[in-house]
């Protein structure tokens, strides 16, 4: 039984690490602060959440499980609120969302 649990936890760890890396990659490669926020908030939350859940699975002691669940709940609750606040203030201070503009050769159309 513990072998199965540890296998699931190992898979969750690798998946969570990959999602955290994908969030950082999206933060570097995307065009605009709003699109970057989309990458970092969603993938980042799921990445951290999966890593914390794998700790909850193999943690054992009840204090470890409780703290892990507290971290998970808090991150899932606060990441959308923080992203919403930054997005709203960025929009208010005049940053326009990125849109694909035609290049100079296309502009004659």
């Amino acid at each position: 039984m513990t072998g199965v649990l540890e296998g699931v936890a190992a898979v969750l760890l690798v998946l969570g690490g990959f999602l955290a890396f994908a969030a950082a990659l999206g933060l570097v490669r995307m065009q605009d602060v709003y699109i970057r926020m989309h990458a970092s908030t969603k993938a980042g939350t799921l990445g951290v959440g999966l890593i914390v859940l794998s700790l909850v699975l193999v943690g054992g002691e009840s204090s470890v499980v409780g703290k892990g669940l507290a971290i998970f709940a808090f991150i899932v609750l606060t990441a959308p609120i923080g992203a919403h606040l930054i997005g709203r203030s960025a929009y208010r201070c005049g940053i326009r969302p990125w849109s694909h503009r035609p290049s100079k050769e296309d502009s004659s159309r």
């Binding site: 969570g16 939350t45 700790l55 992203a83």
Partner: peptide, 26 residues
């Protein structure tokens, strides 16, 4: 390039640090 970009990066940085600390505890 803008201040909100840096704030978003700082947010993700602390989330990654939370994940790394959890990994350390594990």
């Amino acid at each position: 390039p803008t201040l909100p970009d840096r704030v978003v990066a700082l947010d993700l940085l602390t989330m990654l640090l939370v994940a790394f600390l959890t990994l350390f505890a594990l």
